[in-house]
Design a protein around this nucleic acid. Structure first.
Length: 385
RNA sequence: GCCCCGGUCGUCUAGCCCGGUUAGGACGCCACCCUUUCAAGGUGGAGAUCAUGGGAUCGAAGCCCAUCCGGGGUACCA
């Protein structure tokens, strides 16, 4: 290593020549061959100095990457990089080598972008008389534009995925699949299975594009595999975060009855509030014209609501099988299709055209909520006339 | 520019090291089935001259060579 007194090259205005200029700056540095006399002269006149590593000028530096196999560089293509900055702090290159040695690191696994600095690290290990660790350079993850994944891809700090409703296990499962496979078919597997079976020799060499769609699918698979109580527990923080204050606190017993209904309909936990809001608060805002189903008019819709209300308020056991039985008959009497009759009821009870299966939903909602919502719907619908 | 690493369906991949498969699976897409909506599930389909061109071989995605393309690195960042 040697001191270097070269001044920092001012970056050119145009970004174009900038890179080349820097390259030539380090290439033009002659500090390595300075005489003692020249050094003391420079030292007095200079306020900043830096320490560079003296790379061998010939020969090759090579190693066996656990994933890529043998990789080698001609030393002459490697420049004398800085190991100590003018502020007295070591650069990363020096620091990792010292750190890895002190911590007795056996294997260094890092992304492929580090591959080019490996020969520098290797030379440092050797110069310091340290035993170098084994290296494995993993494939990088790219954005949809095939460039190194970064913030502008929306991809983000790992914690944000959690806030977005991805299960950590699902994200892990998805990520590991981006450069490794268990076999020729298994995709969804437990973290334990991954840990038990992961080997470097099955790691891919090529970079992978981060596919949000597939992540979403994996996440959905994990959500569906949860036990209803587990799902309820996972949803709770999201409901507390996203539900309007009036709807809080959420009763956990009630929530575990809701959970199984949307287990197959939710792909991310942060959909929770949106997909369940009508369980916690009546939707008084929906447009009553949505009550009218295809092929129906005002009158048939109104009589459907009234007939349903009569059935519902007369039920003492609000169980989905019984509800379906009774209302199916009523629907037939009105000569409405299931689609029509249940559609009207669905909108009246939930304020939406889309919901989990109607009768299960009503059962969970309970008689009081259901009856009062249907009444309310009748009232608003009549008034809107 | 120079250095390094890659290249199998749109995407993630299996197979490659130890030549002989209709090149397998999955996401996404399409169709059908199921169905009270939405999903989930089931079945089927489209989609890959294995980057390209040569070579050795009876035979190549697999081996050899060249080329092209992509990415990364070229900082007193990490």
């Amino acid at each position: 290593a040697y001191h270097c007194y070269c001044s920092v090259e001012r970056p050119a205005q145009d970004g174009q020549g900038q890179r080349d200029r820097r390259v030539s700056a380090s290439a033009d540095c002659h500090c390595r061959d300075l005489s003692q006399e020249e050094i003391s002269k420079l030292k007095s006149g200079q306020d900043s100095e830096v320490i560079r590593f003296a790379m061998p000028r010939d020969g090759v530096t090579k190693f066996n990457d656990l994933i890529r196999g043998e990789v080698e560089w001609r030393n002459e293509t490697l420049n004398d990089f800085i190991i100590m900055k003018s502020d007295g702090f070591p650069t990363y290159h020096l620091a990792v080598v010292a750190d890895d040695h002190l911590m007795e690191i056996s294997h260094v696994m890092r992304a492929e972008e580090w591959l080019p600095s490996t020969p520098r690290h290797l030379q440092l290990f050797e110069a310091l008389g340290f035993e170098p660790p084994q290296f494995a350079h993993l494939p990088m993850i790219m954005g949809p534009d095939r460039a190194k994944l970064s913030k502008r891809h929306g991809a983000t700090a790992i914690g944000e995925y959690k806030d977005d409703g991805y299960l950590p296990e699902a994200l892990l499962n998805f990520m590991v699949l981006l450069g490794w496979s268990l076999d020729d078919k298994t995709e969804i597997m437990s973290t334990q299975t991954i840990i038990d079976n992961f080997t470097l020799d099955r790691v891919t060499k090529s970079a992978a594009i981060f596919d949000q769609e597939k992540l979403l699918w994996v996440n959905g698979m994990y959500i569906r595999e949860l036990k209803p109580e587990q799902l309820a527990g996972r949803m709770m923080p999201f409901l507390e975060r996203d539900l309007p204050k009036e709807a809080l606190p959420v009763d956990s017993g009630y929530l575990s009855r809701i959970a199984p209904l949307l287990q197959e309909r939710i792909k991310r936990l942060d959909d929770s509030a949106d997909i369940t809001s009508y369980f916690f608060q009546a939707n008084e805002e929906f447009d009553t014209s949505e009550l009218v189903q295809k092929g129906m008019d005002r009158d048939t819709t109104l009589s459907a609501l009234k007939a349903a209300l009569a059935d519902l308020s007369g039920m003492d056991d609000f169980e989905h099988g019984k509800l379906e039985e009774l209302l199916t008959v009523t629907g037939e009497k009105l000569s409405l299709s299931r689609r029509q009759f249940f559609g009207v009821l669905r909108v009246a009870a939930t304020g939406r055209a889309v919901s989990p299966p109607l009768f299960e939903t009503l059962e969970v909602l309970g008689k009081d909520r259901t009856v009062s919502r249907v009444k309310n719907a009748i009232q608003r619908f009549s008034a809107a006339g």
